[in-house]
Amino acid sequence: MPAGPQNEADDADAFQMERWPFYWLTRFTGSYLHRIELGLKNIGLDVPRWRVLMSLRGREVLSVSEIADHAIVKLPTMTKIIQRMQADGLVVSQQSAADGRVTEVRLTPAGREAGEQAWAVANRIYRRAFEDVGQEEIAALNQLLQRMTANLAD
């Protein structure tokens, strides 16, 4: 890496909050989570359950650790969420036949229905957030965020 600031973000004296990408990422995430929480509350769900439902959407089975990875939640926390969802009748979990150390999770019919309702909420918010953004811009944003995420990976 070359010495000295590469751009304005590297120069503490030139820092302007509104020009800091993390400022806008955080503001967007906060607004998004606020809207999704309100929408999910109306259908009796919360964000942790929504993350599980969306992780399993279109998939037959995932392990608890795979769901935790998708949801960006620590494994012990995800285990508790799955247990609560199992008590609610939204998922079933069982030990993997291939690897007894792995717990597999599947949606129940009630879980699939809750997932459809949750998807409708999330999709309305998505359409509003991206109403004046083209598909090429969305693809470019996804690519950029994926690359930045990889840059920060351990």
Rank of each mutant, 00 (worst) to 15 (best):
P2Q: 05
G4I: 04
G4P: 03
Q6G: 13
Q6W: 03
E8M: 07
E8Y: 01
D10Y: 02
D11A: 05
D11T: 01
A12P: 05
A14Y: 03
A14E: 00
F15I: 01
Q16V: 14
M17W: 01
W20I: 00
P21K: 06
P21C: 06
P21N: 12
F22W: 12
F22G: 11
F22H: 12
F22S: 12
Y23G: 00
Y23W: 10
T29K: 12
G30S: 09
L33S: 02
L33M: 14
L33W: 08
R35H: 12
G39S: 10
G39Q: 02
G39R: 11
G39N: 06
G39T: 07
L40C: 07
K41G: 13
I43S: 05
I43Q: 02
G44I: 08
L45C: 02
L45Q: 06
L45G: 01
D46G: 14
P48K: 03
R49E: 13
R51C: 04
R51H: 04
V52L: 05
M54F: 12
M54D: 13
S55G: 14
G58R: 01
R59T: 09
R59N: 13
E60I: 07
E60Q: 11
E60F: 10
V61P: 03
V61R: 02
L62I: 05
S63V: 04
V64S: 03
V64W: 03
S65Y: 04
E66Y: 00
I67L: 10
D69M: 10
A71I: 04
A71F: 04
A71Y: 08
I72V: 13
V73A: 09
K74N: 11
L75H: 05
P76D: 07
M78N: 02
M78Y: 02
K80Y: 04
K80V: 09
K80W: 01
R84C: 03
M85V: 08
Q86D: 14
Q86K: 15
A87F: 07
A87S: 10
D88K: 14
G89R: 11
V91W: 06
V91P: 06
V92N: 04
Q94S: 08
Q95W: 03
Q95V: 15
Q95S: 14
A98S: 10
A98T: 09
D99C: 04
G100I: 08
R101E: 13
V102M: 12
T103K: 11
V105N: 08
V105Q: 07
V105E: 04
R106V: 06
T108V: 08
A110E: 15
G111N: 06
G111A: 05
R112G: 02
E113Y: 13
A114H: 07
G115N: 08
E116L: 13
Q117Y: 06
A118E: 06
A122E: 10
R124K: 14
R124T: 14
I125C: 09
A129K: 00
F130C: 05
F130P: 01
Q135P: 07
E136G: 09
E137Q: 15
I138A: 02
A139N: 05
A140P: 00
N142L: 10
L144Y: 03
R147T: 13
R147W: 10
M148W: 10
N151A: 08
L152A: 15
L152V: 12
L152H: 14
